[in-house]
Nucleic acid binder design. Structure first.
Length: 426
DNA sequence: TCTGGGGTCCTAGGACCC
DNA sequence: TCTGGGGTCCTAGGACCC
């Protein structure tokens, strides 16, 4: 991780730029008939989940992550549109290129938002407020999308400022105004305060960031745990040392698939895990990485989840080995539930404890009699199989091999283009 | 009416080692 | 006979973010 230290400046030189209702705004850009109207990307009035809502829909209470039928009930005129996922990546990259014109210190934190440290750019572009305004204008004129910008001395404050600026606004917090700015804002605007923490804080009468700042740290730690409590108190007092940095390497890779409600038959479990393992392992191989810890998650009907994990003696990146380890863990998890559990609604695999190792190193013999070991005859054969599958995929596209049989696909499942949008670089 | 998919980080208990 | 304290790794669960 490389850090840009803008520490010499005490002005509001950290910018947080955040595209407004990104997926929905792209749909409105692509289809003028949708502009000014309440739309939801993803889901339908009968099922699925809403991935993003336009501001017109948000005005009715529609939010991302909400079941489609709930959204339709809140907003009867809601228009459901299918996503144009390839366009999202292209347009977001175009926006990031524009941000890069203002400073090399850009930390992209998701497809549609980034931090910028502009402390070295003011001699070229003027003060941070001018940079924010210029950046917003360029994104609007060259890409056609609304973007909100917050500028402050720290990342956290810049992020809060961009939330306050939405939609389509710019908020600059001068150093002398920081505490006054934060004081009346709801605690939920802070990074790290979700629904659970918000409810616990409300029970103590803590509603605003000012309330939080006036609460003694030990009380917060008792309520929310050591790490969260201490962090929140520091942030509420605007004591935030984080610098803009390039993204660190990923620490885990995973994939999941919602199934509706299914009885976990051996055939179903094998097919779904094989599909997930293939997605994960091919990503690992493409980057020359491998992982030692395999974690599976089984979500039961009723949304309760159980996880099981195993740490292997050597890192793996082969599809078959990952499938078999995951299969063992999933059946272990299912067996340990009481017998009333007959249906599952999701399977997930994650690989962590990642190492950066070449394929050659993975082939070093360990215990040749164990088929799970990369050095065994079986292990070598599996690597060879994976290599040819990877090659076929490279030539004929990602769906050329290893896709989930149509009979096991659930209508309304997330398209692969959507999955790829969320993937982090390994 | 029934709830996506990609991640990060923290906690707490137990095993194990020195 | 009974026994300390610190560090590291592993596992399961959960909060949170986009």
């Amino acid at each position: 991780m490389f850090e840009y230290d803008g520490g010499v400046s005490s002005g509001p030189t950290i910018l947080h730029a955040d595209l407004d209702a990104f997926y929905a705004s792209v749909e409105q850009l692509l289809d003028p008939a949708l502009r000014g109207r309440p739309i939801a990307v993803g889901g339908s009035a009968r099922g699925g989940v809403v991935l993003a809502a336009s501001y017109e829909a948000k005005a009715h209470g529609v939010q991302g992550g909400m079941p489609g039928w709930t959204a339709a009930r809140l907003c009867p005129t809601l228009i459901f549109v299918r996503g144009h996922f390839e366009q999202y990546q292209r347009l977001a990259d175009q926006v990031m290129d524009i941000l890069g014109d203002f400073t090399p210190a850009v930390q992209r934190i998701s497809i549609d938002e980034a931090f910028l440290d502009v402390s070295g750019s003011t001699h070229l572009f003027g003060p941070p407020a001018a940079i924010g305004a210029r950046l917003r204008r360029r994104v609007r004129e060259e890409v056609g999308l609304p973007i909100s910008v917050g500028a402050a001395r720290t990342k956290h404050l810049a992020k809060v400022a961009s939330q306050v600026a939405k939609p389509d606004g710019l908020v600059v917090v001068e150093p002398g105004d920081e505490l006054r700015f934060l004081d009346p804002l709801p605690v939920g605007l802070m990074w790290g305060v979700g629904p659970v923490a918000e409810r616990k804080l409300a029970n103590l009468g803590i509603h605003t960031i000012g309330d939080l700042a006036r609460t003694p740290t030990p009380a917060l730690e008792r309520l929310l745990g050591h790490a969260v409590g201490a962090k929140l108190n520091a942030l509420a007092l605007n004591d935030d040392p984080r610098r803009v940095a390039t993204s660190p390497r990923a620490r885990s890779v995973g994939a999941q698939s919602a199934l509706g409600r299914r009885r976990p038959t051996p055939e179903l479990v094998r097919a779904v895990l094989g599909h997930l393992a293939e997605r994960i392992a091919s990503r690992l191989r493409a980057k020359g990485r491998a992982g030692r810890t395999v974690t599976v998650r089984v979500r039961l009907a009723g949304m309760r989840s159980v996880t099981r994990s195993a740490t292997l003696s050597a890192p793996i990146a082969t599809t078959l080995t990952l499938t078999e380890v995951a299969e063992r863990l999933v059946w272990q998890a299912i067996r340990e539930q009481d017998e009333s559990v007959v249906e599952i609604s999701l399977l997930a695999i994650s690989v962590s404890n990642l190492t950066t190792q070449s394929v050659i190193q993975l082939e070093l013999p360990l215990e040749p009699e164990d088929p799970h070991r990369p050095g065994s005859a079986t292990g070598v054969a599996r690597l060879a199989l994976d290599s040819s599958m990877d090659a076929a995929r490279g030539r004929f596209g990602r769906d050329a091999v290893g896709y989930l049989p149509a009979t096991l696909r659930r209508s309304g499942g997330a398209p692969d283009e959507f999955r790829e949008l969320a993937e982090r670089d390994l």
